[in-house]
Amino acid sequence: MLKIIDLHASVEDKAILKGINLEINAGEVHAIMGPNGSGKSTLASVIAGKEDYEVTQGDILFEEESINELAPEERAHKGVFLSFQYPTEIPGVSVTNFMKTAINETRKARGLGDMPANEMLKMIREKSEMLEIDRKFLSRSLNEGFSGGEKKRNEIFQLAMLEPKLAILDETDSGLDIDALRIVASGVNKLRSDENAVIIITHYQRLLDHIVPDFVHVMFEGRIVKSGGKELAHELEEKGYDWIKDEVNA
């Protein structure tokens, strides 16, 4: 589904990604771990198409087509979703209105008409119940005055509504208490299928206890320096990142 080939990216001439190679197939969950500043969030933003980053080398293929030159919304229309580490506030725009706009714009790009209101309502009801979201929450302005946990839960609600092919969760676990973590994780698990894939970016093992990855990758200084199965995450939790750094530097 996603194939990243020798990807280099920089921001303001500062190289952040220095040759990423990664292949993700439908049905898989990949975890990307690594110390602060290793380029994890940059990778997420570059896949989503944030214009601040310049791809200087390499390619990103989504379903065998390069998406390097596509605008962020076009990537979204193809089924790329990014759950933001720091979701932005949009005052005066309700969660429902925002979702309605996002869904209908995506449908329009795919040549479909607006989603009928009753269908949308049904979907909102189902997904909000699944994520244990209070209905009142949906009428509030997007992310305005939301607690850290509410913001993250709202991101996963949007993920559930948009049903993307590839979901990138950028530190979704930060700011979540144990109960919220469990709800979010069970939501993501329910959305998993043979048709879609998930990238989980995290510092910690704890989210991976709930959403069990098929592969774990460790990033360091803009490269993936180690890959393995779920047990690699446990090893990192135990030993920290220093041994990885030592391995790389050796």
């Binding site: 919304e73 979204a76 933001f84 949009i90 725009v93 209105n97 925002f98 706009t101 714009e105 948009l162």
Partner: peptide, 20 residues
């Protein structure tokens, strides 16, 4: 960018933000 990422193009995003 947040709006773009959700499939909303820049023109529409501005309209949404301004209406809000």
């Amino acid at each position: 960018f947040y709006c773009n990422q959700r499939g909303i193009d820049t023109e529409k995003a501005i309209a949404l933000i301004v209406n809000g």
